[in-house]
Design a binder for these strands. Sequence first.
DNA 1: TACATCTTCTTGTACAGCCAAGTTCAGCTC
DNA 2: GAGCTGAACTTGGCTGTACAAGAAGATGTA
Lengths: 253, 253
Amino acid sequence: MTAPDNASLYRSIADELKAAIRAGVYAPGARLPSESELADQYDASRGTIRQAFAALVADGVISSRRGARRTVLGGPRLQSFADLVSFSRWARSVGEEPSGRVARLEHRAATLVEAEQLALAEGANVYHLTRVRMLDGRPVMIERTAYPEPVGELVVGIDPSGSITERLEELGLIFADAEHTIDAVPATAEDARLLAVRSRAPLLRERRRTTDPSGVPLEWSEDRYLGQEVAFTVRNSVNRNALSRWHSGPEVS
Amino acid sequence: MTAPDNASLYRSIADELKAAIRAGVYAPGARLPSESELADQYDASRGTIRQAFAALVADGVISSRRGARRTVLGGPRLQSFADLVSFSRWARSVGEEPSGRVARLEHRAATLVEAEQLALAEGANVYHLTRVRMLDGRPVMIERTAYPEPVGELVVGIDPSGSITERLEELGLIFADAEHTIDAVPATAEDARLLAVRSRAPLLRERRRTTDPSGVPLEWSEDRYLGQEVAFTVRNSVNRNALSRWHSGPEVS
DNA sequence: TACATCTTCTTGTACAGCCAAGTTCAGCTC
DNA sequence: GAGCTGAACTTGGCTGTACAAGAAGATGTA
């Protein structure tokens, strides 16, 4: 489990601090060493230590205020971006066995929403994959993912019972940024059948667009989770807020 | 609407850049000026410009990679932390008229969850307020908030039809950090009555703990939104992830 | 035209130093 | 003991420098 030295000093320091926090060396509420102490300890400059701390703040692990020692925030263990993009990786990281069953795979013209989210011209084709995802054999999520053609052509060659995302990464794709929209919807007839729940049961819906480092969309997915079994957690603060709330008005349907 | 000069150079630069992005000077996908250009323009050092950009990255407004100019990310307009903590402020920022109706106000012993979330000793008292929140007169959310005693004593003196949070801020409280847990639940009988929906209708549940700058909990709230009308959006990336996903296992109830 | 190479530009990482502002704590006073 | 004062400590903000690594565009070649 030895963390890689991530090619930069401040990252390896940040990783060590994170590991120490996870291991309980610094409990929630505890005060961390000062910048100068760590600078001595790692033989680094104060600026480098500050970069390491900034990374921890960005992950919502610690809080920092002028004049006072930094303190550890409590709450759930943090997850990496990679764990959010791949259902399989996430499942393993929380100690469960992921699996998947393909419900449908289509190669067709993009819908309006898909074209917009994937930044495609009107009428462009997409690969659209519907899968039921399971934890320890029990269905917990329906995944409806649209891939633009260049990505989709890779996807069709991948075993869909495992992790498509991880395979795409091995093929050289880099998932770098994502935008998630989360709301609650009633299960449709198909949802109910696939997840083995009542029709109109509450589902947690996550719509997600993932892009590569240069901003090119790689996938647009609408995932529906069993409402009470899966939850998302976000941390934010005055200085650091990637969360927003939206009102769409009453639905017509 | 002239932004305050936030007392530090990098903040005012960040604010100007944000305003320019919002105003469309830099459209989504467009490339921003380089660090050296801005350093000349603002007569600041490169480090200060980098701090300003770091703030934009933290807000999920731009993306940044070594070697390439920074680019503007598309997507929804960003909101401030303040808009998330206060329903009233949020409503006004999205152009709707907020209101509230008190359903219940209690002063009682904390439940186990409340005591844990507010870091109170077992048996300590809390003030617990249940309100129905409305947009343009239509109910969209039920707010069930527990305040620790020092805060609650202020709350009872505040007109509950308006914004309690904003009033608390005027009284000197500082809401600095928050942790949000989002899932979907079926409406209980009480929920259904208060929101005028069917029982077991899907609701989006947000559980939120807000703390002051030193980490002292100020409130613990369980808010339930009409499922299809309100959504939360989160942006994250490989370097910056405050979002995580959790599995709680099948519910017994 | 298509491709490879090279130069230039831009951002990332790290160092050093300075002052300001806020916190903490010991010590003093009442 | 309670409260105030002030020194020491700690983080925030800013400047400057240097080099490395990646991206982008220009140039040259086949």
